[in-house]
């Protein structure tokens, strides 16, 4: 059984067809990259999976570990182990990073039937993970994403992923706005979380991220459908020839 199964997903926004019968299977232990030009439906796909209001499927099915996500609200999907690293992480003025993380982690733990972490245990764990991501204590004390640089925002996203230990992570344009050094830190963080029990879907414009997070499969998304699937070499082909050739060939 696949960990994540998208079957014939169709979705409209403002009466316009955005996803047109998209299907995708992701198994445990795999990393999939979804590449595509602007307007191909990449962000819609991530919002749809995460259950954002207004992004409901017209038809089709999504299963996480065999369980349908369609009847679940966004927060239930998150607690069930679906994580979305945002392209544009949202600012929460006045909400301290540490307390935000703690609420999130304890919501997930509660769902899993584990004991909630007390304050001390949590801070210890958070600091350990944060240091791996080169996130300073001082940043965790600041309000979530407020005044963070582009790199800090993305590192904080991956820090949350590492703390929440999701089954499936969707990284939406995680490389956007990152310089090479920050890209390496973020990628190392993601790679450290790869294991045989989870899976990662990387959504990106560019091949460059895939040098650091090496995918098992690369899918080309165009006009609401996956038009081609291959290995890492497919990404190199995109880099060399652009999307146009692939799209025309399809």
């Amino acid at each position: 059984m696949s960990l994540l199964e998208i079957k014939n997903a169709k979705l409209k926004l403002n009466d316009k067809d955005i996803l047109k019968g998209l299907s995708l299977s992701v198994n445990k232990g795999e990393v999939h990259a979804i590449m595509g030009p602007n307007g191909s439906g990449k962000s819609t796909l991530s919002y749809m999976l995460a259950g954002r209001g207004g992004y409901d499927l017209e038809s089709g099915e999504i299963l996480l570990d065999g369980q349908s996500l369609l009847e679940m609200e966004a927060d239930e999907r998150a607690r069930s182990g679906l994580f979305l690293a945002f392209q544009y992480p949202v600012e929460l003025p006045g909400v301290g990073g540490m307390s935000f993380l703690r609420e999130a982690v304890n919501s997930r733990r509660k769902f899993l039937g584990k004991e909630e972490l007390d304050h001390l245990a949590f801070v210890k764990e958070a600091r350990k993970v944060a240091s791996k991501m080169f996130v300073k204590d001082e940043m965790l004390k600041r309000a979530v994403n407020v005044g963070f640089s582009g790199g800090e925002k993305k590192r904080f996203e991956i820090l949350q992923m590492a703390m929440l230990k999701p089954k499936i992570s969707i990284l939406d344009e995680t490389d956007s706005g990152l310089d090479v050094d920050a890209l390496k830190i973020v990628s190392d963080g993601v790679n450290a979380e790869r294991n045989d029990d989870n899976a990662i879907v990387v959504i990106t414009h560019y091949q460059r991220l895939l040098d650091y997070i090496v995918p098992d499969f690369v899918h080309i998304l165009s006009d609401g459908n996956i038009i081609k699937t291959g290995g890492p070499e497919l990404a190199l082909e995109v880099e060399k020839n652009g999307y146009a050739g692939l799209i025309n060939a399809a």
Partner: peptide, 8 residues
Amino acid sequence: FYCLQRGL
């Protein structure tokens, strides 16, 4: 949505 996506 950001908060909900983190399980709150």
